[in-house]
Design a binder for these strands. Structure first.
Lengths: 246, 246
DNA sequence: ACAAAAGTGTTTAATATACACCCATGT
DNA sequence: ACATGGGTGTATATTAAACACTTTTGT
């Protein structure tokens, strides 16, 4: 191997990103619509990902992939697992796709899974034409994906749940200013169970990193809710389940 | 790439194992003593690890590495992170060592970290001459290790703590039959703080997977303690911090 | 007799849970 | 006026925490 290998893609290691978004209609994941080589069946989706470059580390690879896709920097990013089954590629159309984009399409690839959180206000796929065709897909109607991406997504989802129980990362999925209702809604959606409104508010407002603003919602057909901000600096890291409802 | 690649080691992906053990003198990690090519300084340690084979998945690679080292099957094993800094190899003696054992010593390697738990009764390095020189090292006197292995060890340690707070895996570090005192000792050691004896016993015995035996310690210079067994089948998986003391 | 760890309950504090009505806004 | 989500407090149950003495064995 030589110096100029460092400028190339490593044939054996990739990074795949499970990018979560959240809005009124629920939890979303960002999928890439792949051109189906044989065009036999309908749309063909995969997680955004790429081989790593030999001069970047894994986090940098994930950031690069996300930047190319969304043009955003400084997204929340967390590595959750590596996937290395030799038969990760077993469908014929996956293999065909690899042949169309990879220098070494038969190479065995181990992939490292990251999940990322995006504020919906910051990325609307339709408005971004420079990227590959990206699409927000509701988490509960995700179809069969390429390779082992359904497995990666499932693991990413578990990682998100765990993270949200132990660290205040949910804010990364909400607008800069949000209501307690939106925050509760997010937790209920991700965790998959309902939370008592009064208990939720008591617990969450008791945490120092939530900053109440002197501002209210506007233009809603009900009593306007107070807006809050996440105060990163007030948060002191310490593992203990912070959001353990139920 | 061709068919016979599948019989070979993948040059770019390895697995490293943080193998924990526990006895009277505390928490241990299993280190490999590497022959120091330039013999300038003292002993040179690294975590057990190897490039993966192209026909095995990551778990299988970890199992193979552990089997070669300990001759044991069915060890507890948990993947915790991937490490892919391009400058993982930055010391000259690490590079020399790679040149002496690797087909492609300059290749960029991403490694996947696993931690494993061994009952001390099951593995005594001195008694195993077939393996590379392995040594139990007390966790708090681990010297500077090869590559980024100190980082991997540190991350493995955090992963163990997290696991022990949420699942009953501590039993994998204790003899088949153990006392509540040993169990508490283990938790105190790993977690790094003291636990009230009565509260600990109340909580732990309230869990269904702990089976009290009609048997006592023998030959101890104090009141002999009752022995317990871990009853795997009685344990129903459900994440919520099971061992959250302090 | 002494040393060493085992074993055992109660009180208090903190936290979690369950629960229902009025409020402010847009249509 | 009605529909919608916002906002609020209290009582009870559960869980966590603090705390000290007696027991059994080997030396």
């Amino acid at each position: 191997m030589s110096e100029n290998q460092s400028l190339s893609l490593n044939p054996n290691v990739s990074v795949d990103c499970v990018v979560f978004g959240f809005d009124l209609s629920g939890l979303k994941v960002l999928l890439i619509e792949r051109e189906n080589p044989d065009n036999t069946d309908g749309k063909n989706y995969q997680l955004p990902g790429d081989l790593i470059r030999n001069d970047e580390n894994l986090d940098e690879a994930a950031k690069r992939i996300l930047k190319e896709l969304t043009a955003l920097d400084n997204l929340f990013l967390s590595q959750f697992a590596a996937f290395g089954d030799p038969s990760r590629v077993k469908r014929e159309n996956d293999l065909e796709w690899l042949r169309s984009v990879r220098k070494d399409p038969e190479a065995r690839v181990v992939t490292v899974g990251y999940f990322s959180l995006i504020k919906p206000e910051n990325f609307k796929p339709a408005a971004n034409s420079f990227a590959r065709k990206a699409e927000w897909m509701s988490i509960d109607i995700v179809p069969e994906l390429a390779f082992d991406h359904n497995l990666i997504l499932q693991n990413g989802m578990e990682a998100l749940k765990l993270k949200m129980r132990t660290e205040p990362v949910g804010f990364e999925l909400l607008p800069e200013k949000f209501t307690l209702g939106q925050l509760q809604n997010l937790y209920e959606t991700v965790m998959g169970f309902e939370i008592d409104k009064r208990n939720f508010r008591r617990k969450i407002t008791g945490m120092d990193f939530l900053k109440a603003l002197d501002e209210k919602q506007q233009g809603v057909a009900h009593k306007p809710a107070r807006l809050y901000e996440f105060n990163q600096s007030a948060y002191n890291h310490s593992f203990s389940p912070m959001f353990d409802f139920q």
